[in-house]
Amino acid sequence: MIRFKVNGKEKTFDGDPDMPLLWYLRDVAQLTGTKFGCGMALCGACTVHQNGAAIRSCTTPMKEVGGAEITTIEGIEPMHPVQTAWMEIRVPQCGYCQTGQIMQAIALLKDNKDPSDQDIDTAMSGNLCRCGTYQRIRAAIHQAAKHQAAKETA
């Protein structure tokens, strides 16, 4: 029996311990905001937080989440400054990868309050967007950093 938390709620799992967290979240917990894109940690659509750090849930087996606090997009209190910036910059086209992008960006801004373009490139290049919204993602992260700073000084 694996015990862990998802979005603050206690959970247990006694299925296949090799099942990736992604499929637990999507098919078992019905939290579908986390997306399937590649299954090989190559695209970032499945990004969630494990104890606050961004991870790829598609290659994280359930046996590795014991005792962990998992946060999915559903566990982010809207509107988070990153989500606000995403709305203002009107980042999404199809939107499918964007929850993964947002989770990655939130993790970045937690560690780095004012990332440079280079920092953003480094943190975000594991997240693919086939629609090609990278320019707006970069702008939105800068904007979110400003929102976050304003919130913290308020």
Binding site: T72, I73, E74, P78, Q83, W86, P92, G95
Partner: peptide
């Protein structure tokens, strides 16, 4: 659909 997209 922008608000629904950014909130998952």
């Amino acid at each position: 659909d922008l608000p629904e997209i950014v909130t998952g």
